[in-house]
Design a protein around this nucleic acid. Structure first.
Length: 206
DNA sequence: CACCCGATTATCT
DNA sequence: GATAATCGGGTGT
């Protein structure tokens, strides 16, 4: 009899065609993968935030479509990457039911799994890092993009393609998920749209 | 641990 | 001209 081990599969387009809060919550525990020149970098998604331009003033899409945010108004399952604070990139998964526009999930932290030395190279310019540096490798949205080498050129890539994608894993049970207000925003700051895995040391902040 | 601030630049007003 | 979905280093408790 053959082995029953199942290889994780890419999330399908249908996964992204759901309510943004539902997608955000269910992205926890999934594996973000990046392929660069045949090398695999990956990490488990442990912290996310939802943004919904239809009612959320903190969303880049709240005031409508512009050159910067146009990917948020495009098809679901694509990556929206933006440049911020003059130095950093942050990446978001475009989601939403049917034709709903301007909704995305910000990936705030991942737990490094594969290609950790290469991720350390991108992030710290060295391959060997301490345990303290490992915990600091990708525990924030700017850090995730540094470690995975996600920049402006990844804005608008299809997550069903091969350079960046997300693998399916079992959903994290409710009792292991914490829901709080989002971090680093001033508008619509009271919305409880941040989700993270309880007691995971790779989350950006308790 | 908490708060404060400088870096650095695309985007918007 | 002001702001920003951040980060790292500094100071003080």
């Amino acid at each position: 009899m053959k082995s029953a081990i199942k290889t994780p599969q890419k999330l399908t387009r249908n996964f992204y065609l759901k309510d943004v809060l539902h997608v955000a919550r269910n992205l926890l525990g999934k594996i973000l993968v990046r392929e660069i020149n045949g090398q695999i970098l990956s990490g488990r998604i442990v912290e996310v935030e939802a943004y919904d331009g239809s009612m959320d003033e903190a969303s880049h899409s709240f005031k409508g479509k512009t050159k910067r945010n146009e990917v948020m108004f495009g098809p679901k399952g694509y990556l929206y990457v933006y440049f911020t604070y003059g130095m950093y990139f942050c990446c978001n998964v475009v989601t939403g039911k049917d034709d709903s526009a301007g909704r995305a999930v910000l990936i705030r932290a991942i737990e490094p799994l594969n290609g950790i030395e290469q991720m350390a190279e991108f992030r710290f310019k060295k391959r060997n890092i301490s345990n303290k540096e490992l915990l600091n490798l990708s525990n924030g949205p700017g850090k995730v993009c540094l470690a995975m080498n996600i920049t402006k050129s990844e804005n608008g890539i299809d997550l069903l393609g091969d350079s960046g994608y997300i693998l399916n894993e079992k959903n994290i049970p409710d009792e292991k998920i914490v829901i709080t207000k989002r971090i680093g925003i001033s508008k619509s700051a009271e919305l409880p749209w941040r989700f993270y895995i309880k007691n995971n040391p790779f989350v950006s902040k308790k």
